[in-house]
Nucleic acid binder design. Structure first.
Lengths: 346, 346
DNA sequence: CTGTTAGCGCTTTCAC
DNA sequence: GTGAAAGCGCTAACAG
């Protein structure tokens, strides 16, 4: 029933059955006009009969160009990156390209072999969410194929990249809290070595400067990597002699950890955070979220890549930097202020 | 800086530089012991110097076997499937296999071309979450490569598959609600044409039979496809003359829609549902969830596939069906200061 | 230890 | 309209 090896038909087999040469089969399958209707039909009949499919590997070797692009993300378990992957998929499919997916698990040291492996497989281009700042392997990959960076910028490499408005979004969300009168806003951030971590802290800081408040150093926690560490950091902050009156979290997992900590502590505090997430609207918490279209990052990255592929010959265009816009959404407490919900039904 | 076409070095180039034949280069790169240390070093030097990388496409053509497997999921935006993909990734990487990813978007009619495309690209095997029950294209694919089904079973095809305990999980969760004294449990389900939809309804029904209760037909809503339709259905149920006292939802998106409806309606009702999801523990709702390891579905599927690939020659093993276990987790309403109602409310 | 030959399946080029 | 030859880059099989 399964995969009978040695029985995969080739063009020669099709040709033999249709009483033509392999060359003619090739022409028919390519819709070459210079083939008589009669043989064309015979060939198609033979193709159907044998269940023949062109061997893309052989075509790739002959034609150059595998019809595949590589995508390297840091953590497919994070909805952010799976949406990004979906966006890449979407545009790739539109252009007849297949996506080969790799997951670095945020381990920068594993990234080089993943990238090299993809290059070996003759992907025509790469979209990478770089896990670290050491990027020589990506520079090396760029000598073979175009590389587009997503979500995090290249470190000293001249190539396209797609980012979100990290600074702007963080500043705006923080500003919302400050405008509500908060003067003690805690910062719960991912490692500052990460571009997003640094930029979002910068935005947090800028919002404070704009209103002439100096952030309290005891309220700043960085290096949080997941929901659990964020939860602990939040509980710790809450237990301080001078606790915060609001929280700013730099990503979805950190927001979730903070929210869990508040829940466990039986407290409510206004929370602002980067990234929207499921059910954020039904938590009944005063929530200020920096939302954006994660799919769009992937789509844009794929578009930039496809564009380079289409202009392969000729001078490569100057490298571009695309930014995906953010907007702040606010959810109110159950009976609180903010854009109200519509209690319909019942 | 980018991709200089026409300059990609081949084994011949390396050989020329190292003053050996391409064959010797091939041997060195394969770690063939029959090469003198001297030439070995010269070859490696040349490889480094040119930045040479073996062309996998050419190797695939020569050796047969592309080193890639195909994965087709229905909706990468659903964390369930991205986790599944992650699991596949993980095991594939362990075995030196690359994953080519496709997303059918739950459109059954798009699936055939995706599958065919992957087969054309010479993937060595396929893992598929089938979008529909018409599966001739998968039968056709099976003539080329082994195919493993994930999350949904094959319809009349003899091959491996990995499922969750749909029936058992749904029965158990429903039984929890019934044990709490509920007699009017609503069922909010995905399309019954889907295996999971049918099985989970069966489990819901069985739990009722076990305690001698006949489910009320007016409380059963099927064909829900996303959170929005589930939300509407829930609001509708709540507005009925004889509303339910608890809800059972067949997947994460439906649960979320139902929860949103309850929130908007300002009501609390015990909710049971298939699939765990982020923040389920902090909603302050009486929640009964059928949880399981989605990654594991992907891992198991990949293991079954790899196993078949490793026993390619020789009699193929009989087809296997693996089941990933579920367990029920319960979250309570907030004890003490919560606004929740008693489980048997109304 | 190393090189030569042949061919994986396909398509470009040129001949008929 | 169609076919024969050559070769994409690599490697088994056989020399030497």
């Amino acid at each position: 029933m399964t995969a009978r090896r040695g029985s995969v038909p080739t063009m020669h087999d099709v040709g033999k059955l249709a009483q033509v040469s392999a060359m003619t089969v090739s022409r028919v399958l390519k819709n070459d006009p210079g083939v008589s209707e009669a043989t064309r039909e015979r060939v198609f009949a033979a193709v159907d009969r044998l269940g023949y499919r062109r061997n893309q590997t052989a075509r790739s070797l002959r034609l150059g160009g595998s019809g595949m692009i590589g995508l390297v993300v840091t953590n497919l378990a994070n909805p952010f990156y799976s949406r990004l992957a979906l966006g890449v998929q979407e545009v790739a499919t539109e252009h007849g390209l297949r996506v080969v997916l790799s997951n670095s698990g945020e381990q920068a040291d594993r990234e080089p072999e993943l990238v090299d492996g993809l290059v070996d497989h003759q992907v025509e281009g790469l979209i990478v969410v770089p896990a670290g700042s050491r990027q020589q392997h990506l520079a090396a990959a760029m000598r073979h194929v175009p590389v587009v960076f997503a979500a995090r910028p290249p470190a000293g490499l001249d190539t396209d990249c797609v980012l979100v408005e990290d600074f702007h979004g963080a500043r705006e969300a923080t500003a919302c809290l400050l405008a509500d009168g908060h003067t003690r806003v805690a910062f719960l951030g991912n490692p500052p070595a990460l571009y997003t971590g640094a930029e979002r802290l910068r935005g947090f800081w800028a919002a404070h400067e704009e209103v002439g408040i100096e952030p309290d150093g005891t309220l700043i926690r960085q290096g949080l990597t997941d929901s659990a560490t964020a939860e602990r950091a939040t509980l710790d902050l809450l237990g301080q002699p001078a606790p915060p009156t609001a929280l700013f979290c730099t990503n979805n997992r950190i927001s979730q950890g903070a929210i869990r900590a508040l829940y466990k502590a039986g407290t409510t505090l206004p929370v602002a955070g980067f990234d929207n997430f499921d059910l954020s609207d039904v938590l009944g918490l005063p929530l200020t979220l920096v939302s954006y279209d994660a799919d769009e990052i992937g789509r844009q990255a794929a578009r930039l890549l496809v564009d380079r592929l289409e202009h392969r010959d000729g001078e490569p265009p100057a490298s571009r930097r695309v930014t995906v816009p953010t907007h702040v959404i606010r959810h109110g407490a159950p009976s609180g202020d903010g854009p109200g919900q519509a209690p319909t039904g019942a």
